[in-house]
Simulated assay, not measured.
Amino acid sequence: MKTLGFIGTGGMGSGMAANLIKAGYRLVVNDIRREVARNLESQGAEFKASPKAVAEASELVLSMLPYNEAVKEVGLGKGGLHEASSGAKIWIDCSSIDKKTILGVHQELQKKGWKVMDASAGGVEEQAAAGTLSLWVSGPKELFDQHLPVFQAMGKKIVHVGELGNAKLVKNAMAMFGAIQHMGLAEIFTWLKKGGVSEETVHTVLRNSQNHSESVERVCETLVSRKFKPRKSWMPKDVGFGLEMAREMEVPVPFSALAYQLFSIAQANGLDGYEATGIAYHVYALISGQKKG
């Protein structure tokens, strides 16, 4: 079985990497925080001190990193992939970053003989651990086909979305759509509650309407139960990337821009310490004058 490298073993990355071990792959890992890799080491992964060392000890490198600069550093920084003298020459980056960054890193790495693919994950940490993520992958189709079993070990729904960088655009688009959906549902719940319709009734109405879907159901359940996960959402960051790209493309996206402003209101008022549903609930409680609870 192949030896894979995995760089970035935080909340999402650790679950994805663990599923690769479960699928029978030998794994070498790296993270700037050694402690977050300990659990993977206990499952048989081998820790390496740098991305360069990961590449030299593996046949294929994957990464799940938090922001643009981290991806640049892994690819092109000191001890980065570009310094590897042997081993892997294929990198699949699954980070939630912008398209410009992955294209720029690829432009430099291909001079060293690297082939780069990018992927984006739809889902949260629990889905990463369960291996039920949606994965959008872009880059050469032959590489996608060749490494499909790797993607299948980490995700349930895998789609090739075209040329390199498209997976980042799709991730931004899904975040924009999700932001609009979360804020829209919170708005409807808030309005109807003020009009005398209970949240449970709103939930039942939506469940029995043509607007019902798996994602709508998940948001409704959370709004009714108030079981908001106390961890910061990455959605505003991804929406921000989408807005920046839309401006460059001269494509108006007013709904996404408004949803982003609502996230900004939440941040300014210290209400952003939740995942997206919790942020949407609390920001609408604030602007409508309702008490939180």
Rank of each mutant, 00 (worst) to 15 (best):
W234A: 13
S215M: 15
A18Q: 14
G195D: 01
L286H: 10
E125D: 10
G165D: 06
A259G: 10
S213L: 08
A84H: 11
K111R: 15
I92Q: 04
N39K: 14
G77I: 13
G195C: 00
A285D: 08
A70Y: 04
A167R: 00
L169C: 07
M64S: 13
I92R: 01
A179D: 08
K2A: 05
L262T: 07
Q43F: 05
M174L: 14
A130H: 05
P254R: 09
G165T: 08
L60K: 10
R26G: 09
G104D: 10
G10W: 11
G87H: 09
G165V: 08
K157N: 13
W114F: 15
I90S: 05
P140T: 12
E83R: 05
R207N: 14
G80M: 13
V170S: 03
A53W: 02
R33G: 03
L185R: 08
A130Q: 12
E221Q: 06
E275F: 04
A186T: 14
G273W: 12
G178N: 14
R34A: 13
D272H: 10
S213H: 11
A259D: 10
A129R: 14
K22M: 06
L164S: 00
V124I: 12
A130V: 05
G13D: 07
W114L: 11
W91Y: 09
G155P: 06
P66W: 11
S120N: 08
T3E: 06
A129E: 14
A121K: 02
S233N: 00
A186H: 11
Q146D: 02
R247W: 00
W114D: 10
E200D: 13
R34Y: 13
W136N: 00
A128T: 01
